[in-house]
Design a protein around this nucleic acid. Sequence first.
DNA 1: ACGCTCAGAGTGATCGTTCACATTCTGGAA
DNA 2: TTCCAGAATGTGAACGATCACTCTGAGCGT
Lengths: 339, 339
Amino acid sequence: MASTPPRAATLHEVAALAGVSHQTVSRFLHNKGPFKPATIERVEAAIQELNYRPNMIARSMRTRETGILAAILPSPVTAMPTPTLAAAAELARQSGYFMEISVIEGPAQDRARRTQELLDSGRLEGVLSLGALPGMSERPRSPGTTALAILDQYDDRLRGIGPLADASALREIIETLAGMGHRRFLHIQGPQDWSSARARREEYLRSIEDLGLASHGIRGGDWTIESGYAAVSGLEEDSGVTAVIAANDYLALGAARAAHDRGWPVPRQLSITGWDDLPTARYAVPALSTVAVDQRSQGRSAMERLIALVRNEPAPDPSIPVSRLILRESTGPAPAPGT
Amino acid sequence: MASTPPRAATLHEVAALAGVSHQTVSRFLHNKGPFKPATIERVEAAIQELNYRPNMIARSMRTRETGILAAILPSPVTAMPTPTLAAAAELARQSGYFMEISVIEGPAQDRARRTQELLDSGRLEGVLSLGALPGMSERPRSPGTTALAILDQYDDRLRGIGPLADASALREIIETLAGMGHRRFLHIQGPQDWSSARARREEYLRSIEDLGLASHGIRGGDWTIESGYAAVSGLEEDSGVTAVIAANDYLALGAARAAHDRGWPVPRQLSITGWDDLPTARYAVPALSTVAVDQRSQGRSAMERLIALVRNEPAPDPSIPVSRLILRESTGPAPAPGT
DNA sequence: ACGCTCAGAGTGATCGTTCACATTCTGGAA
DNA sequence: TTCCAGAATGTGAACGATCACTCTGAGCGT
């Protein structure tokens, strides 16, 4: 046995060993055109013997196609939206692409620069941003530019088509709680550069007004559990709030713990709702009332959109995301006034 | 204004516009050698005007360096080890690399193939696997191969050096609980192809034996909250178990909820411990006793190791990971026998 | 025997960058 | 003026694949 070659074999080496031209090997790798059985055999043997693997970089250089898409997560993400990512990756793979995840952290300006670098590198055919990307907008792929889809803008566009799920579910929560006697609410919002957080906040305010209820105010501002805890911890003793609408489950979980620490039984004295239906939410004590969002189909349709942009095809019909209110133990009738 | 060129500008175009040779532009981009002020000015202007961005693919083709490392997460990951990944990515960036995350899902055989493809693609200089990779072992980078570091094997190696943190913390848990009167334990294990799950299981069994305690058995087998719930749900009414040692916080959270549903107050009747100190754990009701693992330093040292392999440098001294038992509300004295 | 078609395979250019080497300036000492 | 060192820049090949052609020879109809 000869010692292993210092570097990977090339197409030309395979061709030389098989006694054919490099082009024949290339054709063979792409199943182009008919071959004599003898040729097939020799090429296959040579590939085997040299343990040949095509160099993707060289291929990309010539074809200008890398087959790689990236999902970028902006900013300090405490919990990655795993189902969304998984569904997106799956669809990408089925469509012949590979999806990688890039977490872009650091100060805002730094992030913008690194995002731009990623877009300019020529390494990616498309980028799916899961959060807002200030100053950038969606665009198709063209020779020279990477396609870009932004979940946030996608959400915004969807809102024109029909009532976004966010809106209707939030209204349903408030109507339900109002039906249970709640009159004074608190909203714990998410970061306002996320369109979902904005949508929930807006619909909260609108519903309160439409239904003639009272809002004690809005707290929060990021997606963390600490922020939820702080929101309820800081509530005045006589605020009159009997229901807390949190923008996600983390916030709600923090709020619930804060209520517990202040000796306010949930839901007897304070009802709390979350959003996302995390696995943890169902098993929490008390189990969290929340909104189950179809994250998988959300990830899938965002990726569908990105792929259309990459291929310069018309965008597929956006599927209106389905979300569903799930009432568990953290919501109940409002306490009798004066308790 | 001329219309935007259909494709990105190249080095040669910049050179032509600036009236210098392509090599001068290349040198300029790499800050090599001195330049006349006039040259600098002209090149800078040309780059600006054409909005030139170097084509990374072409560069990689020539230099055989991509500057890209990947962290791969095997299999159905319910929750990504965010701090580990973040710390690894940060170190990679400081060292001049870009770290991407690849989630490899699907049936085992499929995963092996796709992992191999990733390694063979030539697109990556190094790969850090966060879970076991059956049939593969760590290796340095050489002209034809991607470096590979496996967190799992790293853990295994570490064990030879000193007591791995897993072991000592688990013993500490059991000693502490024994000191509170607990005599009969249950372990909810993680998937046994993770070395951390194996280590915890082994140390559980050893500690039980060394301290002359009793184990009612071992349940579980994956990292999910459902699995933790099932473990305690399925416990016989007269098992005599007063303490449950779960291999991570999810399992523990599920176990706690199951206890709640069976009317067993935690910790009055059943003590439960987790592992990882998730944000959720501190805010759960009851707050979970758990082991805080320094995931960041774990991610950092794994990345340090990968970078050493990529650069063919000697591996840095492995830092023994620190973990710390945190007692919260889910553990307490054993109930008086016969309650 | 000729020409045509088409299966099957080969040739050389090309993608955008860096490498290795060659060349041309420039200013100061002889 | 001449020479020379070093500063500053230029030239052409190479990386490993694909693309757009060209070429060869068998089979067939006339």
